[in-house]
Design a protein around this nucleic acid. Sequence first.
DNA 1: ATGGTCGCCACGCGA
Length: 261
Amino acid sequence: MKIASFNINGVKARIGALTDWLAGADADVVVLQEIKSVDEGFPREHFGDLGWNVETHGQKGFNGVAILSKLPLEDVTRGLPGDETDDQSRYIEATVVGDRAVRIAGLYLPNGNPAPGPKYDYKLAWMERLRVHAASLLASEMLVVMLGDYNVIPEPRDAAKPEKWAEDALFLPASRAALRSILWQGWIDAVRIRDPWAGRGPFTFWDYQGGAWNRDDGIRIDHLLLSPQAADLMVETGVDREARAGEKPSDHVPVWVRLAA
DNA sequence: ATGGTCGCCACGCGA
């Protein structure tokens, strides 16, 4: 089972790029972030005609997440537990059954800029809720893949120019510590362990501004976290860097993992 | 030091 994450920065603007990527990706399950659409506005028929089951958790204008799956999506839940007053659409979960059942958790973690400030407070509070919920996912002992746009640069080598991000919510010590506190529960960062002693990158995001792509001034903020049971079945992982060079690209590229499940 | 680019949706906001 191949499972991918793609922050598409507007599903309506990305129908072409997303369709093209899907045609060559051989993915079974794809979680999307920043669909920037309400549920009714999602091009459900377009992707349905291509054989995808679609579950969305949309929002007007901003945010919004979705899951596309070739296999049926079961036990779908929307929203991150822990705060009934949080009305931002950033989290969706579903189970996909291939050779084995895999729990898929798709997330769009708050950006948090400017920091300090209320947006950064929201980011850290959201990460604390994610930490608590992630622990319950691990306790389930299911195969779990928790993936998406984490909006956190884990380490200096995950940025082309780490010094540029020193004051940014994506790289502040508290953001990195909060991500580590989740990882250290026992999650496996699939792209990182592929080559644990490698140098910089691979990157998953290049800003539209300032020619960041042409300078390869990127960061790694889209992550695949695997439960130990899922990591045992990991056979391959990758970052589809070439998607950033396509027509009308998102500022993020897909990341993916293949499980023997 | 500043402005640089997108998407959404029709204006400024969020990233």
